[in-house]
Amino acid sequence: MLLIRCPYCQEERPELEFRHAGEAHVVRPHNIADISDEEFEAFFFHRANPKGITHERWRHVHGCGRFFNAVRDTVSDRFVTTYKAGEPKPALEEHKA
C-alpha cells in the first residue's frame, strides 16, 4: 500500500483513502458543444499512457475530498510530487532526488 501526500492535508496518507481519477491536465473545452469530431476524440478518448513520468489526477476521497494532481513514475510506481488542482505542471528537475 502506497503512501500518498495530499497537497491539501499536507501529509502522507494511506493509499486506501485515495482514488485514482485519470490523466491530469486534460482541459474540457469551454466551447465544447462546438468542437469538431477530431477535437472531441482528442479530448475524450486519447490518453498518454507513458512509460515513466505521468501526470495524473487523484482524489483524497476518504479524506479531505479534494481532487489533486500527481506526478508519478509508472516504472517505479513512485510519486515524484503532488500538487493542487488548477496548479501548473511542476518543473520536475527540482524533484529528482
Binding site: P14, E17, G63
Partner: peptide, 8 residues
C-alpha cells in the same frame, strides 16, 4: 488529542 480526520 483534538485531531480529527476523515479516513477509513
Amino acid at each position: 488529542v483534538g485531531a480529527c480526520s476523515r479516513t477509513v
